[in-house]
Design a protein around this nucleic acid. Structure first.
Lengths: 108, 108
DNA sequence: GCATATAGTTCAATAATCCCGAACTATAGA
DNA sequence: TCTATAGTTCGGGATTATTGAACTATATGC
């Protein structure tokens, strides 16, 4: 089993972050994780953060893309993988970006 | 010759805008157009806004993507096609988004 | 008007990505 | 150990992206 790779955000190009956010499913995941963060939750498992009805392989790939772009962080807990938004780091690297995206996502 | 299609921004999903912005070449184009806007220019032709050395077909496609996402507006002037950022409309539809992206792009 | 130049677009074929079923791995509990 | 849960990985079909070549549209000179 892979140990999850979490890039240093300073190594992540803006285009990669935008690409990770440019998919409806991944946007939903990011929104769910932000909601969990606001509610001071413990993080969310894949199947909780993703829209229902999607094939597992597809969901897994979306999480890999989000991890690769430095947007989320994963840790294993029992059989589950728990995810968290890397909010503080993202805000530092790209100030206002996630706010604007989540804001826009909430409005639609 | 095609008449350019400029979608109503209220019809454009957030994911499409982010996808249009998620490419280094298109980011450069958007930045160049924003610089031109700040300088109160008349807009830029394809070959002025895009990085040099790219094949024409590729550049043309990138502009088509940007138009399709409602980010830019095109008009014909002689043999050229002049482009402008749809800044006010974008800011209204997705407040803060373009600012954050251009800001982030400028920092890198 | 006709040839030439400039500026993009469109077409078509190859290259790169994405999606998802099926098989696999890891952990927990009975 | 057997079964269930939660994801990951693999493979190949579907979708997108890239780009050379041919085409369209406008302008300028002869």
């Amino acid at each position: 089993m892979t140990r999850f790779i979490h890039p240093n955000l300073s190594d992540v190009p803006l285009a990669s972050v935008l690409h990770a956010l440019s998919d409806p499913v991944r946007l939903k995941i990011v929104r769910a994780l932000d909601q969990d963060r606001i509610a001071e939750g413990e993080g969310l498992a894949c199947n909780c953060a993703a829209p229902e009805g999607l094939p597992r392989a597809t969901v897994s790939n979306h999480f890999t893309v989000l991890r690769g772009a430095g947007l989320i962080e994963a840790r294993k807990e029992g059989t589950k993988v728990i995810h968290r938004l890397r909010r503080p780091e993202l805000d530092k690297r790209f100030p206002g970006l996630l706010d604007a995206v989540l804001n826009a996502a909430a409005a639609t």
